[in-house]
């Protein structure tokens, strides 16, 4: 009896050993690889994975969710060991997530949202980000004035930021949204620029602040202000820590702050959690937050007049 149990254990061990001998296939799926943060996360995750000996493949579907679903089905059929969704609401590929669960393939999400059958969603709390941004902007404006809002409600995370703004606005009755613009993707910088040019025409000096749900339209707004109304005192703040935005902050423009989500940290945390799961464990929680970092002229070591 004992010997049988020993044999079984040995068999199990050798099986485990043999699976470990094959590379662990981890597939990253995202529709937004061309956006800087998504790219950063994907690349960091890939590096983290390779450190652990995983074979990491990145698949991008260029803003196309239909294709994202198809590629995910392919990945499940190819029997990958794990799937990582980046910058996507897993609900948009819900059927495929369930399909992966049925096939026993763990799915984790970075910068998405939580859902059944998704082991963990590692993200910044986008709502919190939106609140942080709004608080910082409104304080810089002295608690009153008019803002322009650039939003993109099609992205679930970016939409949460907008909700954070709405919540904060309730605390600041003297702040008014006098214009808003749904940012078109692809081409958000130029779209933001054209919109801001037109909004400046209408409201000019009445604008005291620009609330950008992500940096791209904020950059466009800065370019527009620079050419249309350089003397304006308006303050632009955004989210993402986009390099071009950081450059603008450093150059003492109207761009005063951006909130960088700690994407490498998200990737690292995500990889740690996935490692636990692949080793037979469980994720620590179904949603984990990585706090954002505020970048201002001060943190960049410049003094603006």
């Amino acid at each position: 009896m004992k010997s049988i149990r020993m044999t079984l254990a040995a068999l199990a061990l050798s099986l485990a050993g043999s699976t470990a001998a094959f590379a662990t296939d981890v597939t990253i799926l995202t529709p937004y690889i061309s956006s800087i943060p998504t790219n950063e996360m994907a690349q960091s995750f890939k590096a983290e994975g390779e450190k652990r000996g995983w074979k990491v493949t990145i698949i991008d579907t260029r803003n196309d969710f239909g294709q994202l679903a198809s590629r995910m089905e392919d990945t499940v059929n190819a029997k990958a060991n794990a799937i990582v969704l980046i910058s996507t609401d897993p609900g948009q590929v819900g059927d495929q997530v369930d399909m992966a669960a049925k096939a026993g393939i763990p799915v984790i999400s970075l910068d998405g949202s939580k859902r059944a059958n998704v082991a963990v969603n590692v993200t910044s709390n986008n709502f919190e980000l939106g609140t942080q941004l709004s608080e910082a902007l409104f304080k810089a404006m002295g608690g009153k004035g008019n803002i322009v809002k650039f939003f993109h409600s099609a992205h679930p995370g970016v939409h949460q930021r907008e909700l954070g703004l709405d919540a904060t606005l309730k605390k600041y009755p003297d702040i008014k949204v006098i214009a808003d613009h749904f940012v078109k993707v692809p081409g958000p910088v130029d779209d933001g620029r054209v919109a801001m040019e037109n909004i400046l025409r209408q409201h000019g000096d009445k604008i005291d602040g620009v609330w950008a749900a992500f940096d791209d339209p904020g950059i466009g707004a800065e370019l527009a202000t620079e050419s249309e109304l350089p003397k304006s005192k308006l303050i632009i703040m955004g989210i993402d820590g986009n390099a071009q935005a950081v450059d603008m902050i450093k150059s003492c423009t109207h761009y005063k702050a951006t909130f960088r989500q700690d994407f490498p940290k998200m990737a690292t945390l995500g990889a740690e959690q996935l490692d636990k799961i692949l080793k037979g464990g469980k994720a620590d929680s179904d949603e984990m937050y990585v706090p954002a970092v505020m970048i201002t002229p001060e943190t960049l070591g410049v003094k603006c007049p």
Binding site: S34, N63, P186, G187, V189, D190, R193, I219, G220, L223
Partner: peptide, 17 residues
């Protein structure tokens, strides 16, 4: 010209045209 105008280049930047 788009790159000159916005100071960066995006691989899907022309998609809207």
């Amino acid at each position: 010209l788009l790159t000159a105008r916005i100071g960066s280049a995006n691989p899907t930047g022309g998609g809207g045209y």
